[in-house]
Design a protein around this nucleic acid. Structure first.
Lengths: 254, 254
DNA sequence: TTACACCTTTACGCAACGTCAAGGTCAAGC
DNA sequence: GCTTGACCTTGACGTTGCGTAAAGGTGTAA
C-alpha cells in the first residue's frame, strides 16, 4: 500500500499543499522518496495522518500535534486539558462579544433617526459590562450589590449629552493627571484640579458622593494593580500621585 | 488638543504600531504632519479612534470598521447582523470542539494503561457526533430515531479490534472504489467487490442489513451532494458508480 | 512522440499587528 | 554648541496554516 501525495490527500481529505507543509515542518514525513524525488507514503504514514487530523479537528495547533504524535514522552492529557481551558476562555470571550453585538444591534434598532445613539448606547453598555467583567466580584463584595446596581443604572440612564460630558471629563482628567504628575506635588494647583475632575467624573456614576468613599477608592487605585495600570499608562507614578492628590483634596491625608 | 502618536496611543490604550498601521490602511489618518513628518492627531481623530476601538472590541475586522466609520452610506446595521451570524456560527463550532475535547479527555482518563484507547474512543465519538451534526436531522427523519440511536449505540459499543477493522474496511473501500471507477463497468468484478465491501462496512453500524435499505442508501449517495462529495473525492463519478454497482449487487437494478 | 496528469521547489498572500533596524528630530542639561 | 535620551520616521521580516500561482521535471497512455 504505497501512496503518492495526491492519493494520500484524497484518501484523507486534505490538499497536497497541506501534506507538503506537514513534511516541511516535520510533522509527517513520507516513508521515502522515489528516484524522481516524489514523496511516497506507506501504511504507517496513513495512520499517523489520521491521528494528526483527529487532533487538528480538536483545534490543537500543529506544534502541539507534532509533539503529541512524535514524542511519546509528551504529556498528551495535560496538553488536551490545557487546550480545553483555552477553548473555554475563548467561549467566554465569544459570549461576551455576542452579547455586546446584540446589544448594539437592538440599541440601533430602537431608533433609526438618531443614528449616533447606537454607538452611544453601545458604549455605555460596554462600559458597564466591562466593569462587571473586570471588577464586578470584588467591587460588589466591597460596596454591596445595591450600590453597584444603582451605579450601573445611573450610567445607563445618562443622556447622550451627559455621556459626552462624562467621556470628555475622563479625557481631561487623564490629560491633567499627566501634566500634574510632572509637578511631583500632589498639593499643587493642577493636582488639586485633577482631584476635583476625578470627583466630577465619579459623580456621573456614583449614586452619592462622600469624601470617605472617594479617599477609599483612591487607596484602591494603588492597591489594585489593574486600576494602577489603568492610570499609570499616562505616567509611571500616576496612580500613587492621584491617590495623594485625592487624599489632600478630601482632607483625609496624614 | 493635539497629540503625537504616542500620546494618542497612551490615551486610547493602543500601540504606536497600531496607529501607524491604521494610517497605512487608511482607517485613521492623522489630522496633519508637522515639518519633520511627525503625525499629529486632533480631537476629531481621538473620537474616531474611540469608534474604531469600539467596533474592534465587537470583533469586527478592520475592513468593515473602515467602511463603517468612513462611509456614511454603508449599512452598519446589516454589517453587525452579519457579524452576529458569524459569531453564532463560530460559537456552535466552538461548542462542538469543546464537547469533543472533553470526551477525548474523559475517555483518556478512564484508562491509563491502554493508552491508545483514548484516541479510539475519541474517534468513535467523533464519528457519531459528526454524523449527527451533518446528517442527523434528515437521516432521523428518513429512518426514524430508533434506528439511528441503535446505529450510534452499535458504533460506540465496537471493540477496538472491530473499530480498527471498520476503519480498515473503509480505507479499502475507498481504494477499491477508485480503482473500480476506472473500469467504468459497475458489473465488473472489482466493482462488485466494492459493493460487497460497502455492505460489510455498513454492517458495522447498521442494526440490520437489507438489500432494499442498501439500495436506498445508494440512491441517496447520488441525490445528496454532501454524500456525493464524500465519495467523489476519489473519482469524479464515484458516487454514481457506487450506486450503480450496489444496485446490481443487491439485484434491484432496472 | 505528443499530450496530459502528476510531481517537484520557490515564493507571495492572508490579518493585524509585534518587533527589530537604521536613521532623523526635539528638548534639556552641560 | 554639543551631547544625551526620548521621541519620531520608514522599511521589512515574523507570526499560523495553508491557498495559489509559477516554472519546470516525470510518468504513462494513445
Amino acid at each position: 500500500m504505497e501512496y503518492t501525495i495526491q492519493k494520500l490527500g484524497n484518501l484523507a481529505g486534505v490538499s497536497t499543499r497541506t501534506l507538503r507543509y506537514y513534511d516541511e515542518i516535520g510533522i509527517l514525513k513520507p516513508a521515502r522518496k522515489n528516484s524522481a524525488g516524489y514523496r511516497i507514503y506507506g501504511r504507517q504514514e496513513v495512520d499517523k495522518l489520521q491521528q494528526i487530523l483527529f487532533y487538528r479537528e480538536l483545534g490543537l495547533d500543529l506544534d502541539s500535534i507534532k509533539r503529541l504524535v512524535n514524542d511519546p514522552a509528551f504529556d498528551g492529557a495535560a496538553a488536551l486539558k490545557n487546550h480545553r481551558q483555552q477553548l473555554l476562555e475563548k467561549r467566554r470571550q465569544l459570549d461576551l462579544l455576542i452579547t455586546n453585538v446584540e446589544k448594539t444591534i437592538s440599541a440601533a434598532e430602537g431608533e433609526i433617526q438618531m443614528a449616533d445613539k447606537e454607538k452611544f448606547e453601545g458604549f455605555k453598555q460596554k462600559l458597564v459590562d466591562d466593569n462587571e467583567q473586570q471588577y464586578g466580584e470584588e467591587v460588589r463584595a466591597k460596596y454591596g450589590d445595591d450600590l453597584v446596581d444603582r451605579s450601573n443604572a445611573k450610567m445607563l440612564n445618562m443622556s447622550e449629552a451627559q455621556y459626552e460630558e462624562f467621556m470628555s471629563i475622563e479625557r481631561t482628567l487623564m490629560e491633567k493627571l499627566a501634566e500634574a504628575c510632572e509637578t511631583e506635588d500632589p498639593a499643587s494647583g493642577i493636582a488639586q484640579q485633577t482631584a476635583d475632575l476625578h470627583r466630577q467624573w465619579l459623580s456621573f456614576t456614583w449614586p452619592m458622593y462622600s469624601k470617605e468613599a472617594h479617599a477609599g477608592l483612591a487607596e484602591m487605585y494603588v492597591a489594585d494593580e489593574r486600576f494602577a495600570a489603568y492610570y499609570n499608562k499616562v505616567h509611571p507614578n500616576a496612580a500613587e500621585f492621584l491617590r495623594d492628590a485625592i487624599l489632600i483634596y478630601t482632607g483625609t491625608s496624614e
